[in-house]
Amino acid sequence: MNTEVEFATSADVALAHEYLDLKNRVLEARQRADRLRQLAEHLDTQAARDEHALKELEGVLGLSAQLQIENLDRELGGKRLQEIAVAVLAREVAPGQAVHYRDWYALLCAAGYRARGKDPLASFLSQINRADDVEPVGSRSGRYRLRTA
């Protein structure tokens, strides 16, 4: 069986060349399209990683309007603020020793916490005044100590 095709005219030869050229161009175009798709996917993946890193940095720098999940546990309010503040005071100050609420709040912040609210120090003061385990020292001195049993 003869695999060679014989063409009758020069027009047939020209069409055969055109066919082969077009077939090669289609193959090259498909290969280029595949490479471009792979590159686009790589760039999209990299952009998603960079966006994630950007959001993390915005959170760390305080530029993000939304709180990061890890900061939610560190921003305290209500009863939880009282509990953590009393635990910090018990750990950091000798029994019976008085401490000014500003210093106490600094100890809380040094432990990695802060009071929730527009004015965190005012929120802190409001909550420690409600804490059962704490008593004020003197009248309007701003000093507190743990209650003794």
Rank of each mutant, 00 (worst) to 15 (best):
E4H: 14
D12N: 09
E18T: 08
Y19V: 08
Y19I: 08
K23P: 01
N24Y: 13
V26C: 06
Q31N: 12
R32A: 13
D34E: 15
D34S: 12
L36W: 10
A40R: 11
A40V: 07
L43V: 07
Q46A: 13
L54N: 13
K55A: 10
E56W: 06
E58C: 07
V60S: 08
S64H: 04
A65L: 10
L67G: 03
E70T: 03
E70M: 04
N71D: 15
N71K: 05
L76S: 02
G78V: 03
G78W: 06
G78R: 05
K79P: 02
R80E: 13
Q82S: 06
E83H: 04
A85P: 00
V86R: 00
V88Q: 07
V88A: 08
L89E: 02
A90Q: 13
R91W: 08
V93T: 06
P95Y: 09
Q97D: 15
Q97K: 14
W104G: 00
A111S: 12
Y113E: 02
A115C: 05
R116D: 05
G117W: 05
D119N: 07
D119Q: 08
S123A: 10
Q127N: 06
Q127E: 14
A131F: 02
D133F: 04
G138E: 07
S139A: 10
S141C: 08
S141Y: 10
Y144N: 00
Y144K: 00
L146I: 12
